[in-house]
């Protein structure tokens, strides 16, 4: 790093101190994730590094907690639930969200700002309040402790994320493409399928991923709306942490971290692709 000529000694020292501070903050952010992974291979049922692990003794590491996940019917059941609920909530949220984002981006749509506010309100309202409202209302109409109830709740919570990501891809959308398509004889459906959707697809997919993560990671609504039958992975972790904490949780957590890395990579690739498609310079 070349310092400007006016930089004093103090300034140069500060420069390094500053980098160390930043390093510590970034470490603080990453520490929980970094620590988790090796501990999930602990051969002993402890939540700390054993002397064997520190001396890299191969016997101190094992896959027993990963075996434990697969042999535990509760974990398997909760994984199935998470995937089922997440899948349907994602499909619904993506459909509703994309449609709404399209409607909001039309130049003639009236009351755009208040409607946008209403539609993204599930993201704004603190989750405990949404869960409280849904808990009261869903139990009144018999949706509490059912799969459809949870799916509807997670769809509502996922829609804002789809709207926001799809709206972002629609900024700068070239309206003349629709006219061009229509002048070539395509009806509305064909225009959607062949012109609009391919262009906004990266936004739709990353919106869908956001919706899936929202559902997959959601715990508060699940706590209040699910019965024993509908417990999801976060619900299972919740009771694991609060009742009897076993290292199996660390193995599940490690798998979830790998899952987040995969998602993060996908979203980033999609963002780049979308920018390329729209002719924006990649940042």
């Amino acid at each position: 790093m070349a310092f400007p000529s006016y930089a004093g000694k103090l300034e140069k020292t500060w420069y390094y101190v500053f980098r160390i501070i930043c390093g510590l903050v970034l470490f603080f952010l990453m520490a929980p994730i970094v620590v988790l992974i090796p501990l999930s291979f602990n051969a002993e049922p402890y939540f700390t590094f054993t002397p064997g692990m520190l001396s890299l003794d191969a016997d101190a590491f094992s896959l027993r907690w990963y075996h434990d996940i697969l042999s535990n019917p509760q974990w398997i059941h909760s994984m199935k639930n998470s995937v089922i609920i997440g899948f349907f909530a994602t499909i619904l949220a993506t459909g509703f969200g994309t449609l709404a984002a399209w409607g909001l981006s039309r130049p003639y749509t009236p009351f755009r700002v208040p409607i946008m506010g209403l539609l993204i309100s599930p993201m704004i309202v603190p989750i405990i309040i949404s869960a409280a409202g849904m808990f009261f209302f869903y139990s009144k109409v018999g949706l509490s402790q059912t799969y459809p109830g949870l799916i509807l709740a997670h769809t509502a919570l996922g829609i804002p994320f789809v709207i926001i990501t799809v709206t972002a891809t629609l900024i700068g959308f070239d309206e003349s493409l629709i006219q061009a398509s229509a002048s070539l004889g395509a009806n509305l459906l064909t225009t959607w399928r062949k012109v609009i959707l391919p262009l906004i697809l990266p936004g739709v997919i990353s919106g869908a991923l956001f919706a899936f993560v929202t559902s997959f990671d959601e715990i508060v609504a699940v706590l209040f709306l699910s019965g024993f039958e509908q417990r999801t992975i976060p619900r299972q972790m919740w009771s694991g942490i609060r009742e009897q904490i076993s290292p199996t949780i660390l193995a599940v957590a490690t798998l979830l971290v790998l899952f987040s890395i995969a998602l993060l990579t996908t979203v980033e690739l999609l963002r780049r692709r979308s920018e390329r498609l729209r002719g924006v310079k990649p940042s």
Partner: peptide, 15 residues
């Protein structure tokens, strides 16, 4: 990465 990681994972880890 922390932003994308499940909240419960991070809380487990803090414990």
């Amino acid at each position: 990465l922390p932003f994308w990681t499940s909240l419960l994972v991070r809380l487990t880890s803090w414990i």
